[in-house]
Design a protein around this nucleic acid. Structure first.
Lengths: 121, 121
DNA sequence: CTGAATCCGATTGGATACTG
DNA sequence: CAGTATCCAATCGGATTCAG
């Protein structure tokens, strides 16, 4: 696995490995985006439809942030109308076990509590 | 496993199981607290020393929130000076695979990037 | 020792309108 | 189609002080 680019803000202290992980994939939507990309490459519009709860601004912020961290890759064909795809990088693929764990727990919690998860599409 | 108490805010919509998980254990410090309690019961002061990056206010907020969600239990002996212990509930124990995944990824990322994790104590 | 209370700034998130 | 640009609200988080 190639070494990823940007190490978290130097000068920061981490007292637990979980703190570091959260520094990289924390926030309300980063893991949701990654969980969808785990299923394969998605176009921008497809991500929007699959994550209706996030605003465009925040979605783009997350995509740019994850790209800067080397977890996802953006591919544009440069045509008109534009066609842009996002996919996990090799580095991003290393997160699959984390994303799986988050997904499985959510499913089980939903089943236990009766919370409904309504998939778009 | 007993059904936990408070289902996330009714009226909210979840389009992916990961969104639901994040609703329950999202935020900057919740998983860090849980990861320490995964190793066994801790007194309040011990948690503070192990998580030097969090302020007292936020630590107490997280402890109260996780308690309300039924993920941790607070036990006080009522003496003076007081002695309070926190531990994972059965419900909280269901999160262990998630916490493990977050921890393992953080350790590997630290090794790849050279980030140092400095344990207190 | 285990908190509660207060004040405040920083960060995040959301609605809407606009563009190549 | 895939974004930008603004403006604003809400939440999160930090430092400090006080208390039983």
């Amino acid at each position: 696995m190639p070494t990823p680019k940007p190490v978290p803000e130097s000068g920061q202290r981490f007292s637990c490995a979980v703190e570091l992980t959260l520094e990289v994939i924390g926030g309300k939507w980063a893991t949701v985006v990654l969980a969808h990309l785990k299923e394969g490459a998605h176009r921008y519009g497809a991500l929007r439809r699959r994550i209706p709860g996030v605003s465009e601004k925040v979605l783009v912020q997350r995509l740019r942030g994850l790209e800067a961290r080397g977890l996802i890759e953006r591919r544009s064909d440069g045509g008109r109308p534009p066609e842009v795809e996002y996919r996990l990088t090799e580095e991003g693929l290393s997160l699959v076990p984390v994303l799986e764990a988050l997904y499985v727990w959510g499913e089980q919690y939903a089943a236990r509590t009766g919370v409904r998860i309504e998939l778009p599409d």
